[in-house]
Design a protein around this nucleic acid. Structure first.
Lengths: 182, 182
DNA sequence: AACTGATGATCAGCATACTGAGTAACTGGC
DNA sequence: GCCAGTTACTCAGTATGCTGATCATCAGTT
């Protein structure tokens, strides 16, 4: 089967005839496939921790911003508000985060990472680092830096186009106004 | 209490203190955000067509490989087999594809793009082209070419790591062995 | 023909990722 | 102190994206 397997990486299995750009050259399609690979690598490297990439992101955000409400958490992790709520619910079920009603604003629920969550995060960080390294193996040192820079620029400058944009916390005037950890 | 979790405003959400690499610098996280942006742009540009990026990909694959079975289709679009079946089912409901039992192999169902599907594809191509252009606005001409090349290389060289790898059709010895279009 | 292993499709189940609507609670203006 | 607009969360509904199991069928062997 040496005939069909030698497909140039840039064209894919079926180069296009009539259309201008082949499906396999569209950045949208390529980003989707790279995302699939990144997720697959995450599950492979983090199998022992039984968490998803999104759950890991929530723990990372909470480790740096403990006690934020769900909407703020969604903004910090660039999640949809509903999705964030569901992920937090599963993390709560696993004992990795705790949810408490705020006393300052009874609409909000403040999310705190638990000791178990912090330990898992500390243990998983090395595995997650391996995910990134394996993902970028096809690129050399300079290309990796450029690739990450391009991704960051696209994500940053197009942030408001996203349906779940990144929303950093506006700090400097009274903190993050939570009811605080117990 | 403005706890010790308060991050200086100068660092914001993009830099880290203790850990080696910040969440916002991890390629896996950045790819996820770029994917969200690409999907959002797709829905914005293609609102009039009422299709999803994945459904568009299926139509593109069928336009070049009409009559393949679902597993082959999944491989050509880099979808999971179950996901591919669901997407095809919705496309069938919308009248954009047709599903017929193969006479050569009664296990398989061959998928064909309909005339409606071909027309929608032709109409949507310009909108999809705009999606790609808008996505890459933050990059200059040379950077765009490099970015796409990096994505293609990562997707290609890590293909087997994906849980839904790209599976080109092995051509040259008897075609794709379907029952053929009506 | 029967047996065995592989394959295509489907199903149950779980986890993201969204939209739009609804409810409860806060906030600013009066 | 009331009212209007806003906000936090939740729910229903839809669409991807997977795993593992099941069933029917096919292919190669005996």
């Amino acid at each position: 089967m040496s005939t069909s397997t030698a497909v140039p990486a840039t064209t894919g299995p079926t180069t296009q005839r009539g259309d201008a750009v082949a499906l396999y050259q569209l950045p949208g399609h390529l980003i989707r496939r790279c995302h699939q690979i990144a997720v697959a690598l995450f599950f492979e490297e983090c199998a022992a921790f039984d968490i998803t990439p999104q759950q890991y992101a929530v723990l990372r955000v909470l480790a740096a911003n403990d006690g934020v409400d769900q909407i703020t958490l969604a903004g910090l992790a660039a999640f949809n508000r509903t999705t964030a709520g569901e992920i937090v619910e599963r993390l709560e079920g696993a004992g990795l985060v705790a949810r408490r009603n705020s006393k300052l604003d009874r609409r909000t629920k403040n999310i705190f990472i638990t000791e178990t969550g912090r330990r898992l995060l500390a243990d998983a960080n090395a595995a997650v680092k391996r995910v990134q390294e394996r993902l970028l193996i096809p690129l050399d040192r300079d290309e990796r830096a450029r690739f990450i820079e391009y991704l960051a620029r696209i994500a940053s400058e197009n942030n408001e186009l996203s349906r779940a944009p990144l929303r950093p916390i506006a700090r400097g005037r009274g903190g993050n106004r939570t009811s605080g950890p117990a």
